[in-house]
């Protein structure tokens, strides 16, 4: 079998980026602030790529992605806090537990809401995000509003290899699913669900599939987040967090996994690079979000391209 060019590029990208991170860390080329960014970048890549599956490929807006993240974070953290174990197996299990718990919730939420579409579905995901938040706030074993603390830091920058592998797995699994008969079915639901049904695609099945896979990786990302920061509270995972992930997906390009990765890296590192402009950060995000949609969707780009092309033609005619 001839080896695919795509596979070579992927392997190279993975090896090179791992080598780069290792080199930077070992040589001490990163200061404390930049080192502290490594894990958040990984977490945001996982969140963005998994949200992209739901929003970019399935075409449904999920405003509750932070909710799945919080479920993963709490489930993983509760495990590490209650079960004594060496660091490596502990974090691996915490990640799996976080992911599976979030996926179970994704399924439970997905089954009833799959009948909805568009605006309504978006609002229901938002509602579920808020419900999860207020339930976490009210439960005693999650320690209510004070949240969980002293979570072992098993996923901080010293354990970057584990996080790196988790990121790679997330990206590969989602990229592979998207480029398969299941992924095509998901995209067909986005493009025209009536036509999808007419060629034998069970629309709800693929909505759930996308939701559950998305929730799973958001959960894993949440578990990593918890074991990097050490403290989690219900308010950590609010609506704003969901929107931040959405901003990454939209700016990176809906339906582009590469775009999500690049946008996640840039948008996570940006506040650190632009120190002091933190107040402006969310403002800039919101402007970027609006500008991005207006440029892409209002026909503005087409007009611009048209003018550009007609300009070229005129020149050629001269």
């Amino acid at each position: 079998m001839k080896v695919d060019k795509k596979i070579i590029v992927r392997v190279l990208a993975i090896v090179l980026s791992y080598a780069l991170i290792t080199f930077l860390l070992r040589m001490g080329l990163l200061n404390r602030q930049y080192t502290a960014l490594l894990i958040p970048i990984g977490v945001n890549i996982m969140l963005a790529v998994s949200l992209n599956l739901v929003t970019g490929f399935l075409g449904e807006l999920s405003l509750g992605h932070a909710g799945f993240m919080s479920i993963g974070a709490y489930a993983g953290a509760l495990f590490s806090l209650h079960v004594e174990m060496p660091a490596l197996p502990s974090i691996l299990l915490a990640m799996v537990i976080g992911g599976v718990t979030a996926a179970v919730f994704g399924f439970l939420i997905g089954v009833p809401v799959l009948r909805l579409r568009g605006d309504y579905l978006a609002i229901v995901t938002l509602a579920f995000g808020e419900i999860i938040k207020s339930v976490l706030n009210a439960l005693s074993f999650t320690n209510g509003a004070r949240g969980l603390s002293k979570i072992p830091l098993n996923a901080n920058y010293e354990h970057y290899t584990i996080v790196f592998i988790a990121v790679v797995i997330t990206v590969l699994v989602i990229a592979n699913v998207v480029d398969s008969r299941h992924g095509r079915a998901v995209c067909s639901v986005r493009d025209n669900y009536i036509a999808a049904e007419s060629v034998g695609i069970h629309v709800s099945r693929f909505k759930i599939l996308a939701f559950v896979i998305g929730a799973f990786f958001a959960g894993v990302a949440g578990a990593i987040y918890a074991h990097n920061v050490g403290i989690i509270k219900p308010t950590t995972f609010d609506y704003n967090q969901s929107i931040e992930i959405l901003v990454i997906v939209v700016l990176g390009g809906m339906g582009s996994i590469k775009g999500s990765i690049i946008a996640a890296i840039i948008l996570t590192a940006l506040p650190e690079v632009l120190r002091g402009a933190d107040d402006m950060r969310m403002l800039l995000y919101s402007i970027a979000l609006i500008a991005m949609i207006l440029i892409n969707q209002s026909g503005f780009k087409e007009k611009l391209l048209e003018r550009f092309h007609s300009g070229k033609k005129q020149k050629a005619g001269e």
């Binding site: 807006l61 929107i243 939209v250 969310m282 919101s286 402007i287 979000l289 609006i290 207006l294």
Partner: peptide, 12 residues
């Protein structure tokens, strides 16, 4: 979807 995202952007 585009309109919804813009509206969220305006809210933000």
């Amino acid at each position: 979807l585009a309109v919804l995202i813009t509206a969220i952007g305006v809210s933000f």
